[in-house]
């Protein structure tokens, strides 16, 4: 008996075999002693397990068991409910990085023409957040990175990721 036939026998026992294949398995059971024995073994395991859990009792008194549940239920709201950020706080989170960027753009717009007049080159690269300052007379190069300091991932809590 190959693997596929064995699994078909099991599917037949569990009522999960498509009707088209049932006749095939019934014929096998009628003529093959090994198939019949395996089928009986699988069925006996199922019968042996029937009612097994009914005999398992909780080894704690009703009161003791309930007391922990009650305590946790009473504690939950304070622990799980995250207060929504105030409107002012949300506005602050949005405006601070935006205003820093705006200030940087204005500063560059004002300073760049003046620097060009003084023979200094200020270039911006493909990355909008990087500005490079060259002063050929002084032989100096300054690279300015304008990335926001806030880390958005810090706002994510473990509960948000592993939602049970």
């Amino acid at each position: 008996m190959n693997d596929e036939t064995q699994l078909k026998l099991q599917a037949y026992l569990d009522g999960e075999l498509p009707s088209a294949e049932r006749n095939e398995v019934e014929a096998l059971l009628a003529q093959d002693a090994d198939a019949k024995a395996l089928f009986a073994e699988l069925g006996n395991t199922t019968k042996a397990l029937a009612g097994f859990e009914a005999g398992i009792k909780l080894p704690e008194s009703r009161e003791f068991y309930w007391s922990k549940i009650q305590r946790e239920i009473g504690r939950q709201p304070a622990q799980t409910q995250r207060p929504a950020p105030l409107f002012a706080e949300r506005l602050r989170r949005l405006l601070v990085p935006a205003s820093v960027c705006a200030a940087a753009v204005i500063a560059v717009a004002i300073i760049l023409p003046q620097l060009r007049q003084q023979g200094v080159v200020l270039t911006d690269s493909d990355d909008a957040g990087i500005f490079t300052y060259h002063n050929y007379e002084a032989g100096a190069t300054l690279v300015w990175l304008d990335y926001p300091a806030e880390n958005n991932f810090a706002d994510i809590e473990v509960d948000d990721i592993f939602d049970l």
């Binding site: 099991q10 073994e41 699988l42 006996n44 395991t45 199922t46 397990l49």
Partner: peptide, 8 residues
Amino acid sequence: FYARRKMA
């Protein structure tokens, strides 16, 4: 299948 056979 394995679990049932092992149990038996």
